[in-house]
């Protein structure tokens, strides 16, 4: 296991940020910690990367106990935090060479590694320019390059694509996937379900300091009851007629549509259409809705909120 946690707890005063978290993250996988703002994701990353101390729990990273051997852990990890950790007054190459020196790489090796990463992260042209002139996406890439200089075995990415435009985000995803191909373990936090769905082997949903669900994207989606067929009608009369024929539906009067529960099977769809046909009800538009992580997320975190306020 690359990362394990048993009963990880952390609070600031009365405010409980992490309330007994268990993690088992296998080597060479991408694990995504998913949660809304303020769920405790960044705190979890800060603890696992030795920035702050946990109040309780057994934690290991790369087989080393966090409390007893923090320096051994530090020698194995790389961190790209939510806020850029680059030296804005130096240029891109100098930033990488600084990292190479701090990883105690041999001088020639450090230069080669820096050149390689500039190439890989598409920063060759910007290498000699001060970072202060970089765009957000470039800074993020440099930040990741700095994290990679020492070839860490476990990489923590705290919301690596927050604030990036869609194209830069895709680019970042590809980079992250390539990293895992090298056998590196990645601990990724995100508030984007799409990102977790795209990248992660396993996802854990964090809400109010607790893991409310854990599994593969597929497993999580299965936890949400069924999808639906959305039917839109030209007028209220047609919608009423359809509702009478179909029986069990959810009405959305605002956009003249009905949602019929569905398991996504063709037979179900055909039967719905046949019923409408025989009743001569015209459907203007049809769409199929399969459960995605958004549903999972809303279902899981919404429940927690209700429980908390109850």
């Amino acid at each position: 296991m690359a990362i394990t946690a048993r009963g990880l707890r952390k609070s600031y005063g009365d405010h409980v940020v992490l309330d007994g978290i268990d993690l088992d993250i296998a080597e060479g996988t991408i694990f995504s910690l998913l949660g809304p703002n303020g769920a405790g994701k960044t705190t979890a990353v800060k603890i696992l990367t030795t920035l702050i101390k946990a109040d309780g729990g057994q934690l290991t990273v790369g087989g080393h106990d966090l409390a007893r051997e923090p320096d051994a852990v530090r020698a194995m990890i790389g961190v790209t935090g939510q806020f850029s950790a680059v030296e804005t007054l130096l240029n891109g190459e100098e930033n990488l060479l600084l990292m190479a020196d701090l990883w105690h790489l041999e001088r020639r090796h450090g230069r080669r590694r820096a050149a390689e990463l500039l190439e890989r992260l598409d920063l060759v042209e910007a290498a000699k320019k001060p970072v202060i002139t970089y765009s957000g996406g470039m800074r993020r890439r440099l930040d990741l390059a700095m994290t990679l200089v020492g070839s860490p075995r476990v990489i923590f990415l705290d919301e690596p694509t927050t604030g990036l435009d869609p194209r830069s985000r895709r680019g970042m995803w590809q980079l992250i996937r390539d990293l895992v191909a090298d056998g590196v373990t990645i601990f990724l936090t995100t508030q984007y379900l799409e990102e977790a769905d795209h990248l992660a082997d396993r996802i854990a949903v964090l809400d109010h300091g607790r893991l409310v669900a854990e599994g593969t994207a597929e497993e999580l989606k299965r936890r949400v009851p069924g999808g639906s067929i959305a039917l839109r009608f030209a007028d209220v009369a047609a919608m009423d007629a359809a509702a009478r024929v179909l029986g069990q539906v959810t009405r959305h009067d605002d956009d003249l549509s009905l949602h019929v529960p569905s398991d996504g099977a063709v037979a179900t769809l055909r039967s719905v259409l046949n019923q409408l046909d025989s009743a001569s009800v015209a459907v203007e538009n049809l769409s199929l809705h399969t459960p995605d992580l958004d549903d999972v997320f809303l279902a899981l975190t919404g429940n927690m909120e209700r429980k908390a306020s109850a």
Binding site: T50, R74, V79, G81, F83, E87, L102, M146
Partner: peptide, 12 residues
């Protein structure tokens, strides 16, 4: 700035 946080996560 984030850079010191980065230094803190390194074995230096």
């Amino acid at each position: 700035e984030g850079i010191i946080a980065r230094f803190r996560t390194m074995a230096i």
